[in-house]
Design a binder for these strands. Sequence first.
DNA 1: CTTAACATTGACGTTAACGTAAACTCTTTC
DNA 2: GAAAGAGTTTACGTTAACGTCAATGTTAAG
Lengths: 135, 135
Amino acid sequence: MARTASSSESFSISDLAAEFDVSPRTIRFYEEKGLLSPARTKGNQRIYNRRDRSRLRLILRGRRFGYRLEEIADMIGLDEVDLDEAEQIRQSLAYGGRKLAEIRSRIEELTLLEKDLQATAAKLRRRLEALEKPP
Amino acid sequence: MARTASSSESFSISDLAAEFDVSPRTIRFYEEKGLLSPARTKGNQRIYNRRDRSRLRLILRGRRFGYRLEEIADMIGLDEVDLDEAEQIRQSLAYGGRKLAEIRSRIEELTLLEKDLQATAAKLRRRLEALEKPP
DNA sequence: CTTAACATTGACGTTAACGTAAACTCTTTC
DNA sequence: GAAAGAGTTTACGTTAACGTCAATGTTAAG
């Protein structure tokens, strides 16, 4: 509803808050932690572009899987700013590679969790049948 | 190392702590929250059987995906103890069904996260190449 | 039976990730 | 241009999920 002009290019904090169903405070908090750094208007208000927006999406996605913000920061390749750029990129690549492996193993584990729950459900259904048949 | 007799049947708290790489405190904490309820020895020490053990595994699995303990409790169908058993089972089944859907969508999301990271990695690699070729 | 290693309860401490409130400034709308 | 509605910073509060003693009891090994 805000920032009507160029609305496909830039977003206010409450635009993003509404879109991703988080509070503005949450978004500011991510900035405090160095995960976002949006531009500012003359009046010092935050304006987010599409890159900021997809970074936020990535952060929230990571969070949903129990990653801590610090890990997410590493994943998207922040800090290590004191290295030369090539070395910094190599570090990020290495980190990303490890995280990719981790994510794949998480997918496997989720599949196991799914099976656990299915087994539990099956047991419950059998128990329920047993309860309903006799009476 | 402990509980040498019948070691394939029962486990001490530190057995499980070692096996799953968590602290005994963590396991006791889960019990405080009603997620576990192991038997006790005459001397009041906890003894866990295989069911307790796999429940712990389920708890830890859920935790790894950012589920809160309370949600996990719901998933494995605790509380609602004041309902008759059939209704309790139906509730658990309903809850489990919702969780299953959620888990499947999480698997999809993880796949998206995986792609995000792969795209990031690809970008970084291109950047690295550009840095290494010219000089 | 004694000692070392392990366990128990209770209580207080810690950390991450925000929530909330206050005091103020922009921006938008009428 | 004046009020209403967003946004800003600062600072303190909150909650989940444990960590960390401390004081005391239990079990296994020699």
